[in-house]
Design a protein around this nucleic acid. Sequence first.
DNA 1: GCCAGGATCGTC
DNA 2: ACGATCCTGGCA
Length: 185
Amino acid sequence: MRRLPSSFYTRDTHLVARELLGKLLVRRWRGRELAARILEVEAYVGEDDRACHASHGLTARTKVMYGEAGHAYVYMIYGMYHCLNIVTEQANFPAAVLIREVAPQFATSAETDGPGKLTREMHITRSLNTEYLAASDKLWLADDGFSVASSRIIRTPRINVAYAGADAKLPWRYLYQPKRLTQSA
DNA sequence: GCCAGGATCGTC
DNA sequence: ACGATCCTGGCA
């Protein structure tokens, strides 16, 4: 199992998003390693993307997106949930990939099919904002050799970004469909 | 300072 | 379809 190096993140955000599907998200928490396979992500790319938090420029919150790729961008949403993003691209170009759904590889009774649920189950909070995934002992990503066929990757518009106008229609959500869908007559 | 709104989720 | 709940950004 190989930890993803910083060079993995310093690339086109859509490429990183696709390649994050099937990778393992690992959280070391209270002496245990909680691993989960990434199933669904969304790309947020630059100040021109009206759905991206950086669309209003550099602020205290978005500063991490302007920094070096491979850092975690964790923010609180609706006063009670956290969302985990991975910063991508060159420094000074604000972009990130939102992790939306994972398949836990650890024992858990709760669902993890949503960005707020997975952070809750994996104990990911704003204390991990700006964490450097290429070197952290608390949060990182790994490649265990699991292969994702490109034919199993689906693109759709991003979720809950109606405020972004025309950018809400961009197919920047990537889903890995490990199971064959039931055929309909 | 103040206030509107949000990359969500659970319940009605 | 709506409320919870608090951080963020924009404006005064």
